[in-house]
Write a protein that binds this DNA or RNA. Structure first.
Lengths: 129, 129
DNA sequence: TTCGGTGTACTATATGACCAATACACATGG
DNA sequence: CCATGTGTATTGGTCATATAGTACACCGAA
């Protein structure tokens, strides 16, 4: 459960959290039934406000990714993994479509575009190992 | 000079404008010396607030893309085209790196990722013609 | 039972983006 | 000259995000 929050990235912090937790469930980093970090613990870990974490957890509950075990914590729902895998594809496709769309509309050569994409992929893989 | 603004896209409206105007200069849709639409005209055209247009124009002046001919309008600076072409590449690469980075970190297969990218490119080209 | 950790709820405050309205200085065309 | 259209500046308001602080109900272990 390693999250990285980037403020000033346009995307609200609570939304970044929602995405990353969904991705973690999709990858099996947290399995159904397992507890996620507590509101206060995760807030302390990321040095953000507990209310912000709470907001992310609240949305994940409304999407039936997490369920509340009051007094104990929040657990990953049973059927959540399949849905998170599906969600991951949708969420990433959505952003990709936006960015690629902007590039094409801007008039950039398709060759240049593919070149930039390949460079981005290599950089992402390299920085992640 | 055809712009499309999407509110609630995370990116502020004035920043969307700055990018699209830079792209237009890079493409030669507006050539150096030519006047861009007036603050009020563009605001009316996009049904946004004149202050928002003003803010975009102000930033473009600080980057020496536009110059103010007070009482007449705003013109594209002489050396601006080359800089805009360079800026376009940087701006698009930056966003691409972010999105691709998120996809890779999320654990998505590289094959799936390339698949999504190809689909996004085809869709962008198709919707643009 | 008691205590600490859990989720949850509520109010208040600060910041940034954006809208709304107004006012002023300048240039152009009648 | 003067009316119109420019850019520019200022003030105030709304909304979403995020922070800060407090309070309550619940569970489990000591």
């Amino acid at each position: 459960m390693q999250f990285s929050i980037e403020p000033n990235n346009g995307m609200p912090i609570y939304e970044q959290l929602v995405r990353q937790i969904k991705f973690a469930v999709a990858e099996g980093v947290v399995v159904p039934g397992q507890l996620v970090p507590s509101v206060r613990e995760l807030a302390r870990q990321l040095t953000i406000n507990p209310n912000t974490v709470q907001r992310a957890y609240q949305q994940l509950q409304s999407e039936e990714i997490l369920e509340s075990l009051r007094g104990r914590g929040l657990a990953v729902c049973i059927g959540a993994k399949r849905r998170c895998i599906s969600d991951r594809q949708s969420l990433l496709a959505e952003r990709l479509t936006e960015v690629v769309g902007e590039a094409v509309r801007s008039g950039l050569d398709h060759d240049r575009l593919r070149e930039l994409i390949e460079k981005a992929i290599k950089q992402a893989i390299r920085s992640g190992e």
